[in-house]
């Protein structure tokens, strides 16, 4: 009987087959919702009400691109995608630049009270953004700020604590000797930051970019409160949820088109993201 249990490599084959089977099943279950949505987005609302999306697998004649044609030729709907982009890009870039510089200063420039400043910034991680919505709205009202800039600022504010935390950790992971050597060579803080720290922190910046972009791109609540008539795609979809079975013609393509940008970003930065994971700096 022992003969059956080889060491690693020969390790009992049958359970491994079973494991692989179960894992394939799980992977399928994970893909089915997205696949179902994809097919649904190519079916009319009538068909949606009548039968399940899988019927299209044996009646492909049901499929139509009219939902997409409708969506893409509708200026308002297309505009929501544009709004989402206009919200998410600055709402990612601004906090990342601020978090990078602040994280660097907190990790590498010695000054009095550095630790206290760092801790107070990180402790703001406790604050859920819901806690700030109403007063921030009021504040923006008094300084006559609304629409895009208001959303940018709000996203920036609530992206910063995590951003500073991550970037600080990343910079702190750079060997001290590198930075000291540069100082001895006479490099100023600006050039140390730009030429040494930044390139080394790229995996961190990429990971932060993925987080922040995905978050701001997909956000619903902040947009509901601050966006005004700058409706992003999430809000457009939310408005149609109450009439789900007719709204599906917009919801289907909307959800799918809305997922494209974060996925592209993820694939673009995947390598950096993996590096960051491997070093364990994301914890």
């Amino acid at each position: 009987m022992k003969q059956d249990h080889g060491v690693e490599g020969t390790a009992s084959r049958r359970p491994r087959r079973l494991t692989e089977f179960v894992l394939v099943l799980i992977a399928l279950v994970w893909m089915i919702p997205g696949f179902g949505l994809l097919i649904t987005s190519f079916r009319s609302a009538d068909e949606y009400a009548r039968s399940g999306w899988w019927t299209a697998l044996y009646r492909p004649g049901e499929l139509t691109i009219s939902n997409y044609v409708e969506f893409l030729s509708n200026g308002n709907l297309l505009g929501t995608l544009g709004s989402t982009l206009l919200i998410a890009v600055p709402a990612t870039l601004i906090p990342i630049s601020l978090a990078t510089t602040a994280g660097y200063a907190l990790a590498w420039i010695p000054f009095k009270g550095r630790k206290a400043v760092y801790l107070s910034i990180v402790s703001l991680l406790v604050v859920p953004f819901q806690l700030a919505l109403l007063p921030a709205l009021e504040l923006f009202g008094t300084i006559k700020l609304s629409g895009l800039p208001a959303i940018w600022l709000f996203h920036t504010a609530f992206g910063l604590p995590l951003g500073v935390f991550l970037m600080h950790n990343f910079f702190a992971g750079i060997p001290k000797s590198i930075i000291e050597a540069a100082r001895i060579d006479g490099a100023g803080e600006g050039s140390i930051f730009a030429n040494l720290a930044l390139p080394n922190a790229l995996p961190g910046i990429a990971s932060l970019a993925i987080f922040q972009f995905t978050w701001t791109w997909n956000d619903l609540l902040v947009a509901l409160v601050f966006a005004g008539n700058r409706t992003p795609i999430t809000v457009a979809i939310q408005q149609r949820l109450n009439d789900f079975s007719t709204g599906i013609e917009v919801i289907g393509p909307g959800v799918l088109l809305g997922a494209v940008a974060p996925l592209l970003l993820f694939f673009a930065f995947q390598r950096h993201f993996e590096t960051a994971m491997k070093t364990g700096a994301l914890h």
């Binding site: 022992k2 003969q3 249990h5 080889g6 060491v7 020969t10």
Partner: peptide, 11 residues
């Protein structure tokens, strides 16, 4: 005297 080629480390 035992051939251990296929034996687990623990054995």
């Amino acid at each position: 005297n035992r051939v251990v080629n296929n034996m687990q480390p623990k054995d």
